[in-house]
Simulated assay, not measured.
Amino acid sequence: MLKLLRPAVTRLLTPLGRALTRRGISPNAVTAVGTLGTVAAALFFYPRGQLFAGTLVITFFVLADLLDGVMARMTGPGSTWGAFLDSTLDRVGDAGIFSGLAFWFVVSGQRVLAGVALFCLVAGAVVSYVKARAEALGMTCDVGLAERPERLVVGLVSAGLGGLGVPYVLAAGLWLLAAASAVTVGQRLLHVRRQAVSIPPRTLR
C-alpha cells in the first residue's frame, strides 16, 4: 500500500525539491537535517509524554526521507555516498524514535512496553542488516511483512493516537510491530538461505 502511495507523495514533494535544488541545497543535506530533526524531536517530546506533538514534528522530518530521493533524481544518478548516508541515517532516525518511546515507558513505569519498544528498535535494525548483508553477497532480499515504511507508519500512528488518549492503541501497535518485525527477520533469513544453498561458495562476493 505504501509503495502505491509513494508516486502521489513524490508528485507533491517535487515542487519543493526543485526549489531547494535551485538554491544549491544537496539531497545529502536534506537527509542529515531530516535525521537530526527526527532524533531531536523524538528525544525531546516522547520522554515528556508529549506523544502527539512529537509525532507531528517527527512526521514532518520523516518526509525528508522522500524529499531527498526526489532531489537526487533531479540532480542526476544517485551517488554511492548518498545511498550509503541515507541508509545509515535511516537507522539513526529509527533508533531515536524507539529510544524516545522507551524512555517514556520507563519514566511512566511501563517497563514491559519499554522492553517491547527496545525490541522493535533492535529487530528493525536486524531487518535492515539482513537485507544489506545479503545484497553485499550478491543476493536479493526485498521481501518481508514489515519493511521500514510500514514500521514507521505503525509506530508513529500508534504513538500519535496514544498521545490523543486513545486507549491501548500504543501498546497494541508496538506489540504488533514487534511481532511483524520478528516475522520479517524470519522471512528474510529463509529467503536468503534458499538462494545461498544454490550458490557455490566461491561465487559469493
Rank of each mutant, 00 (worst) to 15 (best):
K3D: 07
P7D: 08
P7Q: 04
V9W: 07
V9N: 03
L13F: 12
R18Y: 10
A19G: 04
R22P: 09
R22L: 03
G24R: 00
I25S: 06
A32H: 10
A32I: 15
V33H: 10
V33N: 10
T35M: 14
L36Y: 11
G37R: 01
V39M: 03
V39D: 06
F45A: 07
F45I: 05
G49F: 09
G54V: 08
T59V: 01
V62G: 04
V62K: 05
L63P: 04
G69N: 09
V70S: 00
M71R: 01
A72Q: 02
R73N: 10
S79E: 03
W81N: 06
F84I: 06
L85S: 04
L85K: 03
D86E: 10
D86H: 10
S87M: 08
T88R: 01
D90N: 13
R91D: 00
R91I: 04
A95G: 07
I97Q: 14
G100I: 02
F103Y: 15
W104T: 13
W104M: 15
V106L: 01
S108P: 11
R111V: 14
R111K: 10
R111Q: 11
V112N: 05
V112H: 08
L113R: 12
L118W: 12
F119Y: 15
F119L: 15
A125H: 11
V126D: 05
S128L: 06
S128I: 00
Y129S: 07
A132H: 08
A134V: 03
L137R: 08
L137H: 06
L137E: 05
M139G: 05
C141S: 12
V143W: 11
A146C: 07
P149T: 02
R151A: 04
L152W: 11
V153G: 00
L156D: 07
A159E: 13
G162F: 11
G163I: 06
L164V: 03
G165F: 11
G165E: 13
V169I: 04
A172G: 10
L174H: 09
A178C: 01
A180P: 05
A180R: 02
G186T: 15
G186I: 13
Q187F: 13
L189Y: 14
V192D: 12
R193Y: 15
R193C: 03
R193I: 04
Q195D: 00
A196T: 02
V197S: 09
S198W: 10
T203Y: 11
R205C: 04
